[in-house]
Amino acid sequence: MTSHVSKVVSLRSEASSAKTFHAAETEDAERKVDWVSLLVIAPAILILLGFLVLFFYGVYQSLTDMRLGRPVVRFVGFANYIALMKTSDFWNSVRVTIVYALSAVFIEALIGLAIAKLFATGVTLARWLRPFILLPLVLPPMSVALMWTTMMNPQSGILNYLFSLVGMGPFLWISSPATALISIILIDVWTYTPFFALIIFAGLQGITDDLREAARINGARSWATFINIELPLVAPYILIAAVFRLIESFNQFDIIFGTTQGGPGNSTSALSVQAYISAFQNLTFGRGAAMMVVNWLIVLIGATLMVRAWQAVRRRVH
Score class of each variant (00 low, 15 high):
50 G>M: 14
102 L>V: 13
174 I>L: 15
68 L>A: 15
285 F>N: 03
112 G>W: 11
16 S>H: 00
284 T>S: 12
156 S>P: 10
49 L>D: 07
292 M>E: 02
179 T>S: 13
8 V>I: 15
276 Y>C: 15
219 G>H: 04
153 N>I: 10
37 S>G: 06
168 M>K: 15
289 A>H: 02
167 G>Q: 08
212 R>T: 04
188 D>S: 09
102 L>Q: 00
276 Y>A: 14
311 Q>P: 01
71 P>L: 11
215 A>C: 02
162 L>T: 13
192 Y>Q: 12
284 T>D: 10
18 A>Y: 04
192 Y>M: 14
186 L>K: 04
230 E>K: 07
257 F>R: 11
29 A>C: 09
203 G>W: 10
289 A>M: 01
28 D>R: 14
99 V>T: 12
54 L>E: 13
235 A>K: 02
208 T>R: 06
262 G>I: 10
177 P>E: 12
40 V>Q: 01
23 A>C: 02
78 F>D: 02
5 V>C: 03
167 G>F: 14
301 I>L: 09
252 Q>Y: 00
226 F>I: 02
197 A>M: 07
184 I>R: 14
13 S>G: 14
173 W>F: 05
183 S>Y: 06
174 I>C: 15
166 V>T: 15
1 M>E: 10
268 T>N: 03
274 Q>E: 11
172 L>E: 15
286 G>S: 07
281 Q>R: 08
54 L>K: 15
242 A>Q: 12
288 G>A: 12
27 E>G: 07
301 I>P: 00
261 Q>R: 14
300 L>M: 13
158 I>C: 07
243 V>Y: 05
114 A>H: 06
14 E>D: 07
143 S>T: 07
212 R>K: 11
51 F>W: 15
34 D>S: 12
29 A>P: 00
197 A>Q: 05
201 F>S: 06
274 Q>D: 13
250 F>S: 08
206 G>K: 00
87 T>N: 13
31 R>P: 00
213 E>T: 12
310 W>R: 14
122 G>K: 07
225 T>C: 00
159 L>P: 09
167 G>L: 14
296 W>S: 10
